[in-house]
Simulated scan of single mutants.
Amino acid sequence: MVEKAQKMALLVGCNYPNTPYELRGCHNDVLAMHEVLVDRFGFDPVRVALLIDKPGGSIMPTGANIKKALEKMIGQAKPGDVLFFHFSGHGTLIKPHFSSKKEEAIVPSDFNLVTSADFRELVNHVPERATFTFLSDSCHSGGLIDKETEQIGPSSIHKEDKFGSLDVSGNSHKPKTIPVQSIIEHLTSLTNISTSDIATHLMELFGPDASLPFRTPPHEHDFMAKPLKPDEGILLSGCQANETSADVEITENGRMGYGAFSHAIQMVLKENLSPLSNRQIVLLARNTLRMQHFYKQHPCLYCNDENADAIFLSQADHQP
């Protein structure tokens, strides 16, 4: 008997309300995605979890809560299942004191960073022939799944993309990035520890819930102990690792807005009713942003060769 495959999703929007880092469009991004997943892609609303940092919310999108929700979704997955994670919020580049490379990271509501190493560790537990698609509308999001193959990235930039950075609509926008020094200052205000070592602050505040690179040196990570095989991780990033993604304000009072990349994805899906591959989605989103004069934000695609041309959020046959 053939067991029906499932579709599951986690949607996370962080606006950081009442902070100096407040954004306008992240809640709108994931609410719009919720509607598209259910209406177009056939997700059961019961299997779509939503975490937003709305004041008074029951479950906030903290680093620990995001990882727990992802672990739960991956733990329930079977071969052939489709898993989807959409994050809209701040991103940053951070360098652990014992590492020679910078880690791309998303910034949860409590600043307990979730890094590319954490996402690699999560993807390593996705069952064979299940897919994990990660759409990240955040700054420095290129490469957010560590060691994933670049399909569309810095090498794909066109010469004409290097000029200008204005939104043709005239709406104001801001980058979804928080400088490392600002993160350290924020964490210092919570720990009262005088050090520029971010790992010290994260371990003091979050202990075992801190990101993997701040808890163990890179050579001790489980995924470093054996060669990485082609996997089912698929990353659609709002920009390259060295770029920023835009949060756009669309009303005079600034109360409404959207992420430029999330909105571009919505436009691409609305204008193309036939199935699109992951590669097509990213290329069309790039073109959409270019037409809106976001010349310095280049969406990227990271995955194995087969998944680059697989249908976006497609469902494989599940053989028992």
Score class of each variant (00 low, 15 high):
1 M>A: 14
1 M>E: 12
2 V>D: 04
6 Q>W: 05
6 Q>R: 14
8 M>K: 14
11 L>C: 12
17 P>A: 08
20 P>G: 04
21 Y>V: 03
21 Y>G: 01
24 R>W: 05
24 R>V: 15
25 G>H: 01
26 C>E: 08
28 N>P: 04
30 V>P: 03
32 A>H: 11
32 A>T: 11
34 H>W: 10
35 E>H: 14
37 L>Y: 03
38 V>I: 15
43 F>N: 00
43 F>I: 02
45 P>E: 06
46 V>T: 11
48 V>R: 07
48 V>G: 08
49 A>M: 11
49 A>V: 13
50 L>E: 07
51 L>D: 05
53 D>G: 00
54 K>W: 10
56 G>H: 09
61 P>L: 08
62 T>L: 13
63 G>M: 01
65 N>R: 01
67 K>D: 00
67 K>Q: 12
67 K>W: 01
69 A>H: 13
72 K>D: 11
74 I>T: 08
76 Q>V: 02
77 A>K: 02
78 K>F: 13
81 D>P: 04
82 V>H: 04
84 F>W: 05
88 S>L: 13
91 G>E: 05
92 T>H: 02
95 K>A: 03
99 S>V: 06
100 S>D: 12
101 K>G: 01
104 E>M: 06
104 E>R: 07
114 V>W: 02
115 T>D: 00
117 A>G: 02
120 R>F: 10
120 R>Y: 08
121 E>K: 09
127 P>K: 01
130 A>F: 03
132 F>E: 08
133 T>Q: 06
135 L>A: 08
141 S>A: 15
141 S>Y: 11
141 S>N: 10
143 G>D: 00
143 G>P: 01
147 K>D: 12
152 I>A: 11
157 I>P: 00
158 H>E: 15
159 K>C: 09
162 K>V: 06
165 S>R: 13
170 G>F: 03
171 N>M: 12
173 H>G: 09
175 P>C: 09
176 K>I: 02
178 I>Q: 03
181 Q>V: 03
183 I>A: 04
184 I>W: 04
185 E>H: 14
187 L>Q: 01
189 S>M: 11
189 S>H: 10
190 L>N: 08
194 S>L: 05
195 T>S: 15
198 I>W: 01
201 H>A: 01
202 L>G: 07
203 M>Q: 15
204 E>V: 14
206 F>S: 09
208 P>N: 12
209 D>P: 00
210 A>P: 09
213 P>I: 05
215 R>A: 05
215 R>W: 01
227 P>D: 09
229 K>D: 13
230 P>N: 02
232 E>H: 14
232 E>P: 06
233 G>M: 06
239 C>Y: 00
240 Q>L: 14
243 E>S: 02
243 E>Y: 00
247 D>T: 02
248 V>G: 06
249 E>R: 12
252 E>M: 12
257 G>E: 10
258 Y>P: 07
259 G>T: 06
259 G>C: 11
263 H>G: 07
266 Q>T: 12
266 Q>R: 13
268 V>M: 09
268 V>S: 03
269 L>N: 00
269 L>I: 10
269 L>D: 00
274 S>V: 13
274 S>M: 13
279 R>S: 11
282 V>T: 11
283 L>V: 13
284 L>W: 06
284 L>T: 07
284 L>S: 08
285 A>W: 05
288 T>Q: 15
288 T>V: 14
289 L>N: 02
294 F>P: 10
299 P>F: 00
300 C>G: 15
310 A>R: 13
312 F>M: 10
315 Q>T: 15
319 Q>W: 14
320 P>Q: 08
